[in-house]
């Protein structure tokens, strides 16, 4: 009984393990790439819009107070400051949710 010259040895059991390990590694790398932090442009736009939204909402509330209670311009001034605070809070929340 003779084997063809290039199949003299039985298949190496380690070979399968090796291939499997390589496949798993490739998949892990792909997953890491998928889960990687978004690009700087996307992050910047995200945080920027969070902060911008806070300030705009603060201005809106301030102007509303001015209009209905006649506090002009105190309502707007306080609204802007509180809007800055709300914007910062939004950013902190966004960062927190992205780290999870």
């Amino acid at each position: 009984m003779s084997y063809p010259s290039d199949h003299t040895s039985p298949p190496d059991p380690d070979d399968f393990e090796h291939r499997l390990a390589r496949k798993l590694e490739a998949r892990e790398a792909q997953r890491a790439k998928d889960n990687a932090a978004p690009s700087g442009w996307a992050l910047g736009l995200r945080y920027g819009s969070e902060f911008f939204g806070g300030v705009i909402a603060g201005v809106f509330v301030g102007l509303l107070a001015d209009h209905f209670f006649g506090w002009s311009p105190i309502g707007l001034l306080i609204g802007v400051v509180l809007g800055f605070a709300a914007g910062s809070l939004n950013i902190v929340r966004a960062v927190k949710s992205m780290q999870n």
Partner: peptide
């Protein structure tokens, strides 16, 4: 509480602005 309310009001602004700006 006031800051939280403003933060809540800012949600639709943020949501809309992000899609629009992109």
């Amino acid at each position: 509480i006031v800051i939280e309310i403003i933060s809540f009001i800012s949600r639709p602004v943020t949501l809309g602005v992000r899609l629009f700006a992109n």
